[in-house]
Structure formats: structure tokens, C-alpha cells
């Protein structure tokens, strides 16, 4: 199918990744490579292991084995809080906005891990709603505003690899369109993005490569160029 990222511009390489929740074996040997500045999607039906793949990268699952190389460095043995320090920004499916913090406190919570993060002014320019709601408690924001806040929170830190889980879920079309523009803008700024997405129409034009998961394994890798000829198969596999 598609050619993986060449080693010299490779940002993330996952090899034979297995993940477990208690006795349950969820991921059965995931292999994927993502180059610097690329946007890749993880596609699949519910329960196929897409979210678990993101959580495994961060060490948020019970146990994991295999290899996770970030910029050529093995990081699988490192604790979760070190992952952000390596430049990984995570936007979870449930957004995880903290109710006891104001919008701006939520935004300022993560420590800056590297230079090159977006300034507050740039963030408020990208998400003007957040500027207006900066003093509101985090969970009093609308779903769309919370999603923007969850994105903005990691953009400030200097993270270069963004793991975005179902960011369009439950949002109005106008917000989804805005998020699409944001992802496009982030790509032009050189961010590397791994996108777990149910909304294939949203993800298809943004991604350079699609990984299709089923039962905790990658069953296909499809590049942007291969996408038109694989559409029927994808529709059948994903039920979209």
C-alpha cells in the first residue's frame, strides 16, 4: 500500500505494540511510522483499538510492550508525565477540561516543554471565543469551546506531536469546519498530527496517510494518493 516515512524525517515509530487492560489484551502488535509534519489518521470501528493506541503512546494503559521511538529515542519505559516533556500533546476524546479551573487556568496549566509553542495572543487569535470566555469555569464552556480549549492547551506548550482523539465528536458543523481550518493551519506550521476520527469526511482531506485498525491490529495503510481507489473498501470496512 503506502510508503512509510523515511527514517531521517521520521518522528514517531511504533513497533509491535501490545497493550493490556488488566487481563484484556487490547492491542496485538501495532506497527506504524509517522514523519515530521505529517498528519495520519487512525480509522476503525468502535473498539478497534484506536484510542488505546494513543493512550498506549502516553502510558495511560495498564501494561504495554513493544517499542515506541520518538525522534529516534526509545520512550516506552518512561512515565506518562515525561511524554509531554518529549513534546507530545494529547487531546483526549472526553476533552478533560477541569471544572475547578477557569478557561484561562486550563489553558495555562500544562508546563511549557519546548520553545516554539504558540503565544497566548496567537491562541486567542486562532480561537477568539476563548478570549471572551477566559474567566468562565472550564466546564461552563460550550462543547465546541471546550474542544478548542483542549486543543489550545497543548499548542501553548511547544509540543510538536499532537495526538487528537475524536475532536469533532458531537460538535456542530460550523465548529467542525473551524477545527478543520485549525488542523490545516497547524500542518502548515509543521506540527505532526495523529488523528483518531469517526468523521471520515473531516479526516480524509487533512490526512497524508490512514491506518485502518481492526481488533487491535493495523489491517491496512492507505496514502492520500491511494485513497480514491480504496474508498469502496474503506466504506465497507468502516461502515461509513
Amino acid at each position: 500500500m503506502s510508503t512509510p516515512a523515511s527514517p531521517n524525517r521520521e518522528m514517531l515509530r511504533i513497533t509491535d505494540l501490545h497493550a493490556y487492560y488488566g487481563e484484556s489484551h487490547i492491542l496485538h502488535g501495532i506497527d506504524l511510522r509517522i514523519g515530521r509534519g505529517e498528519c495520519a489518521t487512525l480509522l476503525g470501528r468502535n473498539g478497534s483499538g484506536r484510542t488505546t493506541t494513543l493512550k498506549s503512546i502516553l502510558g495511560l494503559v495498564g501494561r504495554r510492550t513493544g517499542s515506541i521511538m520518538l525522534n529516534g529515542k526509545e520512550i516506552i519505559a518512561e512515565p506518562t508525565h515525561r511524554m509531554a516533556r518529549h513534546g507530545i500533546g494529547y487531546v483526549p476524546e472526553e476533552r478533560a477540561i477541569f471544572a475547578s479551573l477557569s478557561a484561562e487556568e486550563n489553558l495555562m496549566l500544562p508546563p511549557q516543554v519546548a520553545s516554539g509553542g504558540m503565544s497566548i495572543a496567537e491562541i486567542y487569535e486562532m480561537f477568539p471565543n476563548l478570549a471572551e470566555r477566559r474567566s468562565s469555569p472550564g466546564t461552563k464552556l460550550s462543547g465546541g469551546e471546550q474542544q478548542m480549549l483542549a486543543m489550545a492547551r497543548v499548542l501553548r506548550t511547544g509540543a510538536k506531536l499532537l495526538l487528537l482523539d475524536e475532536i469533532t465528536e458531537g460538535l456542530a458543523p460550523v465548529i467542525v469546519k473551524k477545527l478543520g481550518e485549525v488542523i490545516t493551519e497547524l500542518k502548515t506550521r509543521g506540527f505532526t498530527i495523529v488523528l483518531v476520527e469517526q468523521n471520515f469526511r473531516f479526516a480524509a482531506p487533512l490526512a497524508d496517510r490512514h491506518y485502518v485498525l481492526e481488533h487491535g491490529e493495523i489491517i491496512a495503510t492507505i496514502s492520500r494518493e491511494e485513497l480514491p481507489e480504496k474508498m469502496d473498501w474503506l466504506h465497507q470496512t468502516l461502515g461509513v
Binding site: L58, T80, H81, A96, L109, V113
Partner: peptide, 13 residues
């Protein structure tokens, strides 16, 4: 207090 896992994922020890 609300979500220790997420706080860790944001880089806090």
C-alpha cells in the same frame, strides 16, 4: 484531584 491521569498526560509529575 479531578483527573490525575490527564494531569500526568499534560506533563505534570
Amino acid at each position: 484531584t479531578e483527573n490525575p491521569q490527564m494531569v500526568q498526560a499534560l506533563g505534570i509529575n
